[in-house]
Design a protein around this nucleic acid. Structure first.
Lengths: 170, 170
DNA sequence: CGAGTTTGTCAAGCATGCTTGACTAAAATT
DNA sequence: AATTTTAGTCAAGCATGCTTGACAAACTCG
């Protein structure tokens, strides 16, 4: 970092309007924080599960499914609608989670075409235990940064999400 | 939702411990909010630029570079270090941004090997203007959810990021 | 019953955002 | 001067998380 270099005459680059635009471009601070946090949070949360390296692992995309699952079971199409992605994409996620015995598909008694997707109530589902453990992770972080801040974060994110959903997709 | 199905004797599935684990697994609320917000924010922010469909576009990964750029220019290796990714990955991002005339590479006068990466002060850089416009997007969202909440969000995310960075990579 | 819709699946493909490995040229170290 | 380190690049590859298209079986409606 030995910036012993030259600055002859001019003080580098004065250009004021340029610098302003530039600072603007750099200033996506909340968005940047959001990204980094999301990335790190996912990363570390999943690292906690320390799953076998070779076998199919639970990946970030999988976790997004859980909050949309009803206890009684939810249809694939409904899941796709809630997640805002294609049925096929959900199907793949469910396939993998089923293989890991985290979820299970049962035929919908009220519709022969449909299947209900729900948590497997399989006793050996240690992965599900691991997932539950992830809730703890959040609690820990809450302790670390303070419950109040965590609550504010929850509130702010909720509002932000509402604002975002309110504009984009229309 | 017409749950006309069978419930003989038992009220569905009483299994209390199971349900608790399950709710835990579903309860990654802050993390889920974080993800959705990050995704939507990126999506909508970039949609604002409405760039030509055929040509190389600015993608989410690009924007993560800007906050780490010094005005005087920053070396690729330093950028890679700050971003926590490989030099090659940064190189590719810079390549693309250079092609779009958003950034430029200039030889580092103090080191013949190195190049300084900085914003192109090219007059026709309408893309940079567009990027600056993204700052406005955040401001707008701030107005929508309230400046106070936005500040709380900023604070909370900062703390969360610090907590996350403090544990993981060690 | 027959037309049309809906549910889930099979298959293939693609954009993104990285990675690792090998290499050149310039600098620093000895 | 010889060796080692550092800066950047070239090339290839891969995991992730989707997509679109086509389809069979089951349901709904006329």
């Amino acid at each position: 970092m030995a910036r012993t270099s030259k600055k002859r005459g001019k003080p580098s680059e004065p250009d004021p309007a340029f610098v302003e635009r530039l600072e603007r471009a750099k200033a996506a601070s909340v968005a940047q924080l959001l990204f980094k946090c999301a990335r790190l949070l996912n990363e570390q949360a999943l690292a906690r599960l320390d799953q076998p390296p070779g076998a199919p692992r639970i990946r970030p995309a999988h976790t997004s499914v859980f909050p949309h699952l009803d206890l009684a079971g939810t249809r694939l199409t409904e899941l796709a609608r809630r997640l805002g992605i294609s049925k096929q994409a959900v199907g793949q996620l469910v396939d993998e989670l089923e293989q890991m015995q985290v979820l299970e598909r049962v035929p919908d008694p009220s519709d022969g075409r449909a299947k209900l997707i729900r948590f497997a109530k399989h006793s050996g589902a240690s992965l599900l235990d691991g997932l539950a453990h992830l809730g703890r992770f959040e609690d820990e972080l809450g302790e670390e940064i303070g419950a109040q801040r965590m609550a504010a974060l929850h509130d702010g994110l909720g509002a932000l999400l509402a604002a975002l959903e309110g504009r984009g997709p229309s």
